[in-house]
Design a protein around this nucleic acid. Structure first.
Lengths: 222, 222
DNA sequence: TCCAAAATGTCTTTTAGGAGACAAAAAAGC
DNA sequence: GCTTTTTTGTCTCCTAAAAGACATTTTGGA
């Protein structure tokens, strides 16, 4: 089992992977393009080969609430495929993204044929549920500064790339994007990021955040 | 399929239910007793026959954050059973609660033997994930009044009992309990509930909340 | 290369609601 | 029934951070 439970294909046996790929259709979405929308029928589930995708909902006044970001090796559009209801969220490519799309019906059939795969999906969903509960906890418990610090530290697992000075988070996010994830505003994110910068916790290189002092960043969480 | 995806046993075929019950050990927990704790190994998963259970985490300063409430017919301790890590939350009986406990290993074996069951667990987890994402959305989007109104309206599904004047929510929660669920404080909950009462949205009977005017309550959500 | 659009930086004002303090009421235990 | 503990009601004060306004910088597209 891969250490990251969300790394779906990595966790499969060759025969399982074949069954998955046989039913898959490769697609490419350009940056900012929508992959599915609120109200759509969940006809497909998707696997990310390359790129990243935000899963978000909209508020009445048009603001975005990001409920998850999906990274290479992860599935998305998954949970809703198990329900007979239209989607409640949008999926949009953050960067140019290559996916494998599998028809929901085909996917369910694979699960029936390969029970072991179904158990792996259980693990993926269970892991995501626990993470979602962690976000709920964070929202209730930490202030903007704490949530931002935790978000950055958490990103390491999926985007972290060690370089000389620290850990580069290999994803380009605007302050607005981050605000939509941690439940804050663009202005507050700008300000708090600059505080972190001034104190030497982070730096920005090529529009990407670099974690310079993780311990100090961890102390921002209270 | 039962309309409530979380009603686990109801959704099973007789043969599946037998397989489940054969491996189950009945237990009774009195009000306020802990069923499992943070740090425990997830050796068992539980099915609620009667009673209700809170799933919560603790903050550094001892406050409670409730991540879910489980009702009769639902499983709990489930998600963590699929991971090889200690539990991150507590489970406590809100009222006297009868459960069926199944060893995690046995449960996984049942899933292997009965693939259809595994798919049903997928549906339960998927549904919970979507609900958790809904809570994240609520926390970011609605104020205390809105969150409280949505919480009460949402409880109908699991606790609602129609009576002459309206819908009784068949669960006794203190204002503190509610605050831990909607991410607020005891004082704010007291005050907001009284506002709802004054405006005729709700009333209290036998320590239980009665929804008198659902439409008016819905208008509190903004 | 230039221009329009998007993103960032930095003010200032405003307010929801957290948090403390204490009295009153209700419930639980003996 | 009586006492202790829990829960509720209602103040007050105070701060984090939302939200608006606008200048500046950066970016991406033609």
């Amino acid at each position: 089992m891969a250490k990251n439970l969300d790394q779906f294909l990595l966790s499969l046996e060759p025969s399982e992977e074949d069954a998955f790929r046989e039913n898959a259709m490769p697609l490419v979405f350009k940056k900012n393009h929508n992959i599915f929308a609120n109200g759509d029928n969940p006809d497909y589930i998707y696997y990310i080969e390359k790129g990243r995708v935000t899963i978000y909902r909209l508020t009445k006044d048009g603001n975005t609430v990001t409920v998850a970001i999906r990274h290479p090796g992860e599935l998305f559009g998954l949970a809703e495929a198990f329900m007979e209801k239209p989607r409640k969220c949008f999926a949009q490519a953050i960067e140019t993204t290559s996916v494998l799309a599998v028809r929901t019906e085909d996917f369910k059939n694979i699960l029936r044929i390969i029970p072991e795969l179904s158990i792996k999906i259980n693990m993926v969903l269970a892991n995501r549920l626990r993470r979602a509960e962690g976000i709920i906890y964070d929202l209730i418990n930490y202030n903007v500064s704490g949530r931002l610090a935790r978000f950055l530290l958490g990103l390491q697992e999926q985007c972290g790339r060690i370089c000389g000075t620290g850990v580069v988070l290999d994803i380009k996010l605007t302050h607005n994007d981050i605000a939509a994830i941690i439940g804050s505003t663009r202005q507050s994110v700008t300000q708090t990021l600059n505080e972190f910068k001034d104190e030497g916790c982070i730096s920005i290189e090529d529009k990407k955040i670099v974690l310079l002092n993780k311990r100090k960043l961890q102390q921002k969480v209270y």
